[in-house]
Design a protein around this nucleic acid. Structure first.
Lengths: 179, 179
DNA sequence: GTTCACATGTAACAGGTTACATGATTGG
DNA sequence: CCAATCATGTAACCTGTTACATGTGAAC
């Protein structure tokens, strides 16, 4: 799923500026399964406007920075539909954390425990963020997606809790084997 | 984490060909948190050989396709360590499936149920694959990573099960609201 | 007065993906 | 005989990331 479709998708819920689109994608309820930054969003919006899939209205206030508000056109809605009907791609999951965990014996206890601690903190933050997002919206599709995120984050957290001991265990094992 | 580090990491567990590295990354126990294909692996291995982080030995059998077996050098092991000690990047998770679920009302019941069914099948397959991988290795780091994958996949599956009804629910909701 | 949130955009660059190109061996 | 698996590699392309560049208003 490319940035174009992402923009169309977010604009489906209502008009927005590039700034707001990025915020929704990187901090809002969508952020756990989507990524996008300015460098890709702004050019995409320009292109989308040229293609007449969105309209742009510039709001200028004297003194204030002007904002460009984008809105979906009928063509844009059709383009979104078309994109949604294309063959579904598999999820992408890349985790440096899990990659690192494979090399626990190269890492040293200190860094390893630091990493495990950090990860649990990150997961707790993510969970809070998701609960907030859930509270702020009653759209059924969003609730399904956010609920999914909550379920997985809770599972991760609980796995970390039951395997906290393994953090050191991972590291000690090779030495034990040598005894 | 780039393909270079990935190659070093896989070679840490023993020598391998480019073909085998790709297989480990895309089908083996690592595949749920890593991705890599030939187009990036082969050039990376060539570069790594030039930089003397790995050695290459060509095995030629008359009639058979020759294979190039790569192995980590001491320098390579150090480079891996260095890479592992760099600041840890956040996980990347992108899901077209969850994105689609936001637009259930645009999708039509047929496609929606099809997608939900497919996803549950995919998750079951993934779970089987992970259990197999777990059975085939007793390295503690790998077990931690695979166990993590199993925990999350099970959570996803169980979420799908309890929200299977929502598949149609998602779709029906807007219509209900209009009644 | 300084930091944070709002707000837009460009350009160079890195990185990886897809498709192409080729060929042997093994098992059904 | 045909499909799958083993096996290597290139080149064009796309896509997105990072860093840069700039400026206002509000809150603390």
């Amino acid at each position: 799923m490319n940035v174009r479709t992402l923009c169309l998708g977010i604009l489906y819920f209502g008009e927005a500026t590039g700034y707001e689109i990025r915020k929704t994608a990187s901090e809002g309820g969508f952020s756990h399964f989507i990524e996008a930054n300015y460098g890709s969003i702004y050019p995409a919006l320009t292109k989308l406007t040229q293609d007449e899939l969105v309209t742009m209205r510039e709001e200028v206030f004297s003194g204030k920075p002007s904002r460009k508000v984008y809105a979906l056109t009928d063509q844009g809605r059709e383009a979104l539909k078309a994109a949604l009907n294309e063959p579904l791609r598999a999820d992408i999951f890349k985790s440096e954390f899990l990659f690192l965990s494979l090399y626990a014996d190269l890492l040293g206890t200190e860094r390893l425990t630091e990493i495990m601690k950090q990860r649990r903190a990150d997961l707790r933050n993510e969970l809070t963020r998701l609960h907030d997002a859930m509270g702020q919206c009653d759209h059924p599709g969003s609730n399904f997606a956010i609920g999914y995120g909550i379920a997985l984050t809770e599972a991760a957290l609980s796995y970390m809790a039951t395997h906290a001991a393994s953090a050191s265990g991972l590291q000690v094992e090779p030495a034990r084997a040598a005894e």
